[in-house]
Write a protein that binds this DNA or RNA. Structure first.
Lengths: 203, 203
DNA sequence: TTAATTAAGTCAACGAAGCTGACGTATACC
DNA sequence: GGTATACGTCAGCTTCGTTGACTTAATTAA
């Protein structure tokens, strides 16, 4: 098996990726460091997200489902009785895309749809016990990675992580997170609102 | 225009998502908080990554390219003269998938392929000046988000962010990041190795 | 009470970006 | 001289996003 031993590949002399270190005006170095810091952040986001999402793939594949199913399951689990439109606004996909995954989730008994009480046009989505069980299985895999990272990094780092991640997401997502957190602290039945948006909305 | 005013939707009495607060054995509450912390991390990763990647979409769309093109451009830009196989191992996609985006990047003059000197089978990839210019445009959009987040969160938070993100990615990605950082500090021509893997490798 | 708006579903078709399997070619290495 | 490696390519499939058009039921406003 070619075990991808890329070690020491391409160790040939390569023109350094860094600009020539000669004749830097004052401040340029700082600016450069800042740019490198941001580029490193791009790397961090790519790798961390790739491996975070990949963690649950084994289970998904054995069930013939994809990541889209997992995302729906996750957000329905976190927001019982969420209206379809709110879920759409969280995921930022079209209802046709959501319909595809939702159909299979309902057919296979992972998600139930209940008619809204005050607005009977709504179909409020919740996990069935089977859905909760599946979500927990998927969660367990990602939890391994995340809690190991949290444990190794320590509490202060986790708080920093939280702050930076919040800063990266848009205002709508931040206020969603705020409401989710408030709900966590015992507030009764908040809206799952993803907060006002602006983008397209076609379909 | 229906401005997605989801505010206060579904504020009907909903069975709390949280387990009934009565009769908690000692420690259960802590355990619960820890689980909620990890679930919140899932949310953070989803929203932050969604908006981070979305930031460059406007430019990509106007050029008729996708995120796959951006990823290739990014990692080629960060690793001039990278062999195809190393890029594949970083992106973790098949060469057929990479070929599709690479073909258009080369055709449109954003990327050049040079024959390897010590191993002439290799096609070492680099950005052309046009490719660098495009990458900078794309970078600028993401930079806005990232540097605002860094600025608002502060240096200590950024370090925590970095530590947690490193912890989430797998060992191979961590050692890639280490090597990239070392290269940054003036070491001459390191390998772009994504470090040994294990997964499939078919195709 | 009628008309407009909204929530949700559905059919059809398309595009981006993954995937597998099977080969071909040039180069390296033993 | 034979095997393994780096890269490219043809063909076809899957997931999951997209647009556009249209229906039904329920709510809301005129």
């Amino acid at each position: 098996m070619p075990d991808q031993r890329v070690e020491a590949t391409a160790a040939s002399a390569r023109p350094a990726a860094t600009p020539a270190p000669e004749a830097k005006p004052a401040g340029a170095n700082l600016l450069f460091l800042r740019e490198e810091e941001i580029r490193a952040a791009q790397d961090l986001l790519f790798f961390a997200y790739r491996d975070f999402t990949g963690a649950a793939d084994v289970i998904l594949e054995e069930l013939g489902m994809g990541r889209a199913h997992h995302r729906a399951l996750h957000f329905i689990g976190r927001n019982p009785r969420i209206p379809v439109s709110d879920l759409l606004a969280i995921l930022r996909i079209t209802k046709q895309s959501l319909a595809r995954v939702l159909t299979t989730l309902v057919e296979r008994g992972y998600v139930t749809q209940a008619q809204g009480r005050d607005d009977r046009r709504q179909r409020l989505l919740s996990l069935t016990p089977a859905g909760e069980a599946l979500e927990r299985r998927l969660f367990a895999r990602q939890r391994e990675r995340l809690s190991a990272a949290y444990r190794d990094a320590g509490g202060a780092a986790v708080e920093g992580f939280r702050r930076v991640m919040r800063g990266i997401m848009d205002e709508a997502a931040r206020s969603y997170m705020d409401r989710a957190e408030a709900a966590q602290d015992g507030a009764p039945a908040p809206s799952h609102a993803p907060a006002p948006r602006n983008g397209p909305q076609r379909g």
